[in-house]
């Protein structure tokens, strides 16, 4: 039985990010892997040691602020679980929150959880549009597609990016990186949502979760014709060639 922890589903419900949880769960169930979802709200108890996959999305500024305070109280538990291999996907606002800080447009420093070595600064213009990113998943080169919409510019410290930008802006529109990776934590600015349209990444996360539990990680292949078609349409539009 895998346990998925959806953090603040009521609060962070922008941009259809709940689709990431739907995709993770569906692709487990289609293969007969039992899975359950814990919806964790403000103040609800959760033991990250018992959880296999955590999803953290983004919200509007108001909601982001409320969730940051709640998550800060759980920081040490989360950090310990991350160190021993907890699989995490954090998108957009959720991504920014895992870093060291966010410097707002007026100069205010909003502290993050500091789980990963990066920081974010507010930019003048929002970075908006379709994105293609090349990532390496266990030696497989995969092109991910999604949609970014963020004012923050993220700069990585001693940390690997999720991938290389083929089209779009990515972390900051300057250095060609998108997202961040640390142990089994995956961060990205990509909405779309990310997992449904990019099943290779979803399956990678499922495999990592199974591996951490010492379960067989061999996944039965699924028919991904529709997903591949959706990505193909976008890559063609973005004029991105894949090998």
């Amino acid at each position: 039985m895998l346990t998925v922890c959806h953090l603040y589903p009521d609060l962070l419900n922008l941009y259809g990010d709940r689709g990431n949880v739907l995709a993770f769960v569906a692709r487990c169930r289609w293969r007969g892997i039992p899975v359950r979802v814990l919806e964790v709200g403000l103040g609800d108890p959760v033991d990250f040691g018992e959880v296999d996959f955590v999803f953290l999305g983004g919200g509007s500024d108001r909601e982001q602020d409320i969730m940051a305070r709640d998550l800060l109280a759980r920081r040490d538990d989360l950090a310990a679980a991350v160190e021993e291999g907890l699989v995490v996907l954090a998108i957009c606002g959720g991504y920014q929150l895992l870093g060291r800080y966010y410097r707002a447009a007026d100069g205010t420093l909003i502290p993050g959880l500091g789980l990963l070595d990066f920081h974010t600064r507010a930019g003048k213009k929002r970075l908006i549009g379709n994105v293609a990113v090349e990532v390496d998943l266990d030696g497989w080169r995969v092109t991910l597609c999604g949609f970014e919409n963020h004012a923050g510019r993220t700069y990585l410290g001693d940390l690997a990016p999720l991938g290389r930008v083929l089209a779009g802006h990515g972390n900051n529109g300057e250095d060609g990186t998108e997202g961040a990776r640390y142990k089994n934590v995956f961060c990205s600015y990509l909405h779309g949502p990310l997992l449904p349209k990019n099943p290779a990444l979803t399956d990678h996360l499922i495999r990592l979760a199974l591996r951490r539990r010492g379960l067989p990680e061999e996944l039965e292949p699924l028919d991904d014709t529709l997903e591949r078609e959706a990505v193909r349409v976008m890559l063609r539009r973005l004029k991105v060639r894949t090998g």
Partner: peptide, 17 residues
Amino acid sequence: RRGADMAVRLKYAGVPV
């Protein structure tokens, strides 16, 4: 323009492929 994305959405909603 995004018909394929709509199809993916229906698939994950549990509509038979």
